[in-house]
Each structure stands twice: as C-alpha cells, then as structure tokens.
C-alpha cells in the first residue's frame, strides 16, 4: 500500500471503471483485478473507493447492477455499462485525451 505510484490518479477512477466495464460486465473484485492487470500494476485500486464509486456511478445511471452466479457458483454483484454510461465514457475519454495531449506537449515529449 505504501509503494509510491500505485494510487489511481485523482478523478480518473470513474473513467477507468467505465472503460473496464465497456468490455464486459464484471463484479467488484474483477474490476479491481482488470485495472491492475491492464495498467501492469501501476494502479492499485482501493476497495473502499472502488465500491463507493460503483454505488455512485450506479446512482448516476451510468451502471446497472445485478446479483448473479459466478463461474464458481457464488453469488456476486455484477456491474454493466448502460447507454448513458457509454456516452459518459466517450465524453471522459475525449476530455482526458485532450488534457493528456496538452500535458505531454507542455512536458516536451511530443513535438
């Protein structure tokens, strides 16, 4: 936990969740795992923040949830992206890209 650099960048957790769920519905731990794997361990998701964020996103209508059986026949709460969620993901992705490009430009890594 104390290892520097594993905190999700402030304000991007929502976008990362939406992106992860755009591929397929997942339960909480699955989302955390997926983010960790795809970011190759750069980001570790705090479960408290994750579950709180899931509740928030669901209430905003970007996610839908459903209790169903897992592959090893346990009950788990699966989250899926709604149409509004997909729109939100597009908007956030566009916004992020715009910012990231600007920062990259400022740092001189891109001509």
């Amino acid at each position: 936990m104390d290892t520097p650099g594993t905190e999700v960048i402030q304000g991007t957790l929502d976008m990362l969740i939406l992106k992860t769920l755009s591929l397929q519905p997942l339960h909480g731990f699955g989302i955390a795992r997926r983010i960790e794997q795809i970011s190759r361990g750069v980001f570790k998701v705090n479960p408290g923040s994750l579950l709180t964020a899931l509740q928030r996103l669901e209430r905003r209508g970007w996610l839908s949830s459903e209790w169903r059986e897992t592959e090893n026949s346990r009950r788990a709460k699966y989250y899926a992206l709604t149409r509004a969620g997909r729109k939100q993901l597009d908007a956030e992705t566009a916004d992020w890209t715009r910012r990231a490009t600007a920062i990259a430009r400022l740092l001189g890594t891109e001509a």
Binding site: H27, G28, F29, G30, A32, P47, R74, R75, A76, K77
Partner: peptide, 17 residues
C-alpha cells in the same frame, strides 16, 4: 446486508487470488 455481501465477496475473491 447487500453492501456486506458485496464486500464479503470481494474478500473471498481476493483470498482466492
């Protein structure tokens, strides 16, 4: 209860991992 179940499930998954 729902929140507790979800957290419990998360713990189990993490343990299994």
């Amino acid at each position: 209860q729902e929140v507790a179940d979800e957290v419990q499930h998360y713990l189990e998954q993490a343990t299994q991992a």
